[in-house]
Design a protein around this nucleic acid. Sequence first.
DNA 1: AATGAATGAGTTTTCATTCAT
DNA 2: TATGAATGAAAACTCATTCAT
Lengths: 209, 209, 209, 209
Amino acid sequence: MLSTLTERSNGGEDKRRLILEAAVRVFAQKGFHTCRVGDIAEEAGVAHGLLYHYFRSKDEVLECIFKETWSDILAAARMIEETDEPARDRLSGIAKILLRAWRRDPDLVRVVVREVARSPELQRRVSDVHAAFAAVERIIVRGQEDGEFRRDVDPRLASFVFYGALEEILTGWVLGTLDEGDEEIARAEQTVVEIVCGGLAPDRQAAEV
Amino acid sequence: MLSTLTERSNGGEDKRRLILEAAVRVFAQKGFHTCRVGDIAEEAGVAHGLLYHYFRSKDEVLECIFKETWSDILAAARMIEETDEPARDRLSGIAKILLRAWRRDPDLVRVVVREVARSPELQRRVSDVHAAFAAVERIIVRGQEDGEFRRDVDPRLASFVFYGALEEILTGWVLGTLDEGDEEIARAEQTVVEIVCGGLAPDRQAAEV
Amino acid sequence: MLSTLTERSNGGEDKRRLILEAAVRVFAQKGFHTCRVGDIAEEAGVAHGLLYHYFRSKDEVLECIFKETWSDILAAARMIEETDEPARDRLSGIAKILLRAWRRDPDLVRVVVREVARSPELQRRVSDVHAAFAAVERIIVRGQEDGEFRRDVDPRLASFVFYGALEEILTGWVLGTLDEGDEEIARAEQTVVEIVCGGLAPDRQAAEV
Amino acid sequence: MLSTLTERSNGGEDKRRLILEAAVRVFAQKGFHTCRVGDIAEEAGVAHGLLYHYFRSKDEVLECIFKETWSDILAAARMIEETDEPARDRLSGIAKILLRAWRRDPDLVRVVVREVARSPELQRRVSDVHAAFAAVERIIVRGQEDGEFRRDVDPRLASFVFYGALEEILTGWVLGTLDEGDEEIARAEQTVVEIVCGGLAPDRQAAEV
DNA sequence: AATGAATGAGTTTTCATTCAT
DNA sequence: TATGAATGAAAACTCATTCAT
């Protein structure tokens, strides 16, 4: 189901939602390029023409999925950002959101992870992707200001390390090269936070950077 | 240029190489799905029919690029693995290989990064991808055995964190969301190693894992 | 506006008329085949479904426009035919009707001129087109009988010359290859009548036909 | 067969010509909009994909037919224009060309006549249409200068009368509303010339224009 | 080895028409 | 009457692949 992070109302746009959710399933199973518009329609149980009633093209369907998903992720990230918790707990919260999304809607995650790298244009168009990265960067900066994190590390690069770690693990689950299960998810969360926050801890001698 | 890590002989397969290198450029610029076989041929300066003399299909061209690239990376990773250096230095060596490849052949990296997540089938076929991951995992395991790294962290997950960090940074360069340049490359290397090895350092209290 | 030659009552069929007039404008601007039913509805300010309340199909809309227009033209032509004026004046009257229609409703003329040749079927269905041609032919025959026109010219062919001349001039205005304006319209009328009736004048030696 | 006015070589572009000629037949029979690309290919005995090897689109095929036909007509018109014959004979020559084309290639004439009014854009793109009109206009102007034609008639309008007459007769043949046959063609030629040149004869009192 | 004409399966998209409301 | 969501046939066009030369 789409929008598992923040529930959306289905009022008045039942079929649109139906198509979107079918698209997630089909993209996840066959991949965006490999599937046909007819596959989505069939999965949704509607005529393929209806898809063009709600979306301008097959591309727009993917874009919508991205936009909704990332806007949900961004909203959640912003809520965490506004907390007064230590940076470590806040990064932990973000890791939870992303990794647990896998449990809630593996298909959605599969699509977002698999197709994100496909189109630079898509990423540019979905500005929330950047905003979510920026939120993590700000959390790290605040951690540095608060003395929780060492200051000699580029916070931008650090945010890429953090996101990259999460994405690779999701990819591992998507491709089946990494064991999945509730326990594994919890462990992954802890491991990522442990490594990244451990690596950012200030009590180590300054790097030679 | 393909095979910048290990030079390959051109003897007797000039045109094949020409096509492969053209494909890297074209895939990088337009993406695998978006480009046509004719684009590759045009870029290579040959008739498109010739491509089918050297490759069974368009897919096989991409597969070849992957195989060669990863076999080079794998070879380099194995050489590093056999070293007696500390784990940190060995991970640093692997980071160097991957990130510096960007400087040597950005198009190649662009293709590998962009299309790697595309097809699970491709990844399965290119078994070297797994082997390279396994090499990193073994380095981490040996680091744990040698007391250089803490033992309460799953080495498999840690290898994903490491690879994911590198891949995300490459993606940032590919998509232009991260500054690039010689200095940035050096800094990225150090930052990734610093964070990951710092996070794996044993002198911290055990994680609650 | 449709029916500018003979005003029609709007009683009880407001919307039908609205759609018909919108269709004229849209067909004129985009052409029959190029426009969509939705364009007509939008232009008329109604839902496209309503069109099917009044017409069986898009084709029928065009057919209606043709029928109404030609029935108006035919009615006017018949009124002129019943006059006792010389043939020349009667042809002049018909030229006036057709060419001045352009001033009154260029869109309508544009549609009729542009689409008339499209479908032989359409022309067959709109029998008034033939009837109007026949009226001109009868005027010429009567002119020959009255000694006003030479008798060695096929009246059927002559009617085609007359109609063709008018149609080509209308086409010139439609396509913008001929200057338009009140003065031009008056001149066109006179020129066509002058040439055709001059050419039909009996005081010349018989053609070798 | 296309290019019946001036024979064209088939050297090296056999299939292109084949497709073009098939298109003429199919457009003539079904109309441009009504026929499918596959119909053309089938008629030509080739795969429909080949059409796109030689033409960018279905539209381009029609445009090509127009261009070639009108360039032939124009060439013939120019040859006649350069003659030293009286204006009447030169107009007669042009009438011959256009009307006899019907006998030689009725399908081609059918297409050109039927679709010419369809697209203003097409007419604008095929500049030879205008050039051919201009040639007739120049013949009339020279006739006026030489005293063969009256001077108080707009030569431009007169050229429209002449062309319109020919076009209407062709349309009559195309639509079957006018008898056809060798004799009819000869008579049509003479009638048009007789009427138009008769109407342009100078020995009549000046028009009230 | 090399070419590029030829093929045709496959895909997106359009749009006239229907129909439940 | 009036709406516009829903349908699905149909069509243009693409492009990987083959193959005669």
